[in-house]
Amino acid sequence: MKKREGEGSSRKNGDAAREQDTGSCSSPVVAAFKVFQQELDTKHDKYERLVKISRDITIESKRTIFLLHRVANVPNTEEVLKEAELKLEGVRQKIGQVAEELRGEDIHQFHRAFTPGIQEYVEAVSFLHYIRHRSLISLEEINARLVYMRAEGGDPKASAEGPAPGAQVLTFHVTPSDYLLGVADLTGELMRMCISSVGNGDIDTPFQLSQFLRQIHDGFSYIGNTGPYEVSKKLHTLRQSLGKVEDACYALHVRGSEIPKHMLADVFCSRTALLDSDEGVA
């Protein structure tokens, strides 16, 4: 019996020694995985911060778009446009925070975190540009406004002036795919602008919008299936918006002279609803 107890104690001591040896052998592996854990946690935290910033960018951009739709209903449009520009300046400061988070990082690892906000910003800034200039803003013009001067220990601030002494220049580049997706969403806002213009008795704006939307549609047609997958999905919505505006312009051209101005919006909405029902049947 004593011999068995001695054998059991020696076996336990051997197991403990082997466990200690195993722990010492695996310690470099454990240390390496701890490093990997820290890197993954850091990237995850950065990703979540970018998602929150993108959400703020989306909200403020949508508010700017809603504000710009008031242009058709106010006598002094310049005040609305200036207020919209101030809101967009705040959005650009938020994009500066994105640029700060991406400093030294691979943008493609975090692109899905902030792309919704950037698309919404492109939609808002292109809508404002169209109202002012009746043209489409280019990708280069958008990126030219996303240059930031970051002072030591300070937040990045957009500035058109040269860099101050000791300041660091940060730039954010909107990707071509985000630009195309934002412009595709712009067509829906232009269709709503057409409805508001018709409701105010403005017959010229719908024809201008129809021509502009046709040019955008032709541009997307050149891309075809070679562009990003999301662009091909939004092309259907673009065609719907163009069809509704062209259908309204047809009604205005044929019957516009005989319909009172205060009833033009009702005619537009009725023909739009009829077009939607036809698409649903098809």
Rank of each mutant, 00 (worst) to 15 (best):
L40W: 10
K34E: 07
E141A: 11
D178W: 01
V254D: 03
L275C: 13
L139R: 03
R145L: 14
D202G: 06
S277H: 06
K94D: 03
E120A: 06
P116V: 03
E60I: 07
R150C: 07
I53P: 05
E279Q: 08
A160W: 15
N225A: 07
S221Q: 12
K82Y: 00
G14Q: 12
L264S: 01
H217T: 07
Q97E: 11
G117D: 00
F110T: 02
P156T: 03
L209G: 04
I259V: 13
V281Y: 12
R103F: 13
S10Q: 12
T237C: 15
P163G: 05
S9R: 13
L190E: 07
E100I: 00
L235Q: 06
S241D: 03
G90M: 06
I131W: 14
L181Y: 00
R214W: 13
I142M: 04
V98H: 01
V122S: 10
H129E: 12
I57S: 04
Y250I: 14
L68E: 05
R70S: 13
A32H: 14
E152P: 03
D266V: 02
T77C: 14
E246W: 09
V281R: 14
K12D: 09
F212A: 03
F220M: 15
E85R: 11
R192D: 06
R18K: 11
V30Q: 11
P228V: 05
N13H: 14
H111P: 01
L146F: 13
L50T: 00
R49L: 02
V267M: 10
L170K: 02
G117Y: 04
G6M: 11
K82V: 04
R192W: 15
A273V: 11
G219A: 11
V183P: 00
G8Q: 15
